[in-house]
């Protein structure tokens, strides 16, 4: 059972939340002519690490707003909660972001960059 601290409402029971899966998947721009295989990286292929995982959650039975969570998939410990469109600040989630295979995909390179130029998806 997780207690998730919604950045807007505070700590709440997991039952109030919906999990949106892997975070920081940027959609390739429509005008970019990337191959089907590269588009599949965006559409279907998922990071599924044993350990630290960056994911999106929504406070669906509360304020209904999205946010990012860095969570360990073995201990279920929540390491960091940070806003959509931004990158994690703590060292281990930061490293996990950089180490993801997704950073090197053509799909990510063909995606819209967020205004902060950090590479995070909105």
């Amino acid at each position: 059972m997780l207690i998730i601290t919604c950045p807007f409402c505070g700590p709440r029971d997991e039952a109030e939340f919906a999990c949106g899966g892997e975070a920081h998947i940027a959609r390739p721009l429509a005008e970019n002519k990337i191959s089907d295989a590269h588009f599949a990286d965006y559409l279907f292929m998922r990071d599924n690490p044993k350990g630290l995982f960056l994911e999106r959650w929504r406070h669906s039975a509360g304020c209904r707003r999205w946010f990012n969570v860095a969570r360990d998939t073995v201990s279920h410990e929540i390491i960091e909660i940070y806003p959509m469109g931004s990158l994690p600040k703590k060292a281990s989630p930061k490293a996990a972001y950089k180490a993801s295979w997704r950073r090197d995909t053509a799909a990510e390179k063909a995606a819209v960059r967020s205004p902060n130029k950090a590479g995070g998806s909105k």
């Binding site: 997991e14 899966g21 994911e55």
Partner: peptide, 13 residues
């Protein structure tokens, strides 16, 4: 359960 896990346990709801 709604989240990814390798822990062989889930949540009560």
């Amino acid at each position: 359960d709604k989240y990814n896990s390798y822990a062989q346990r889930g949540s009560f709801p």
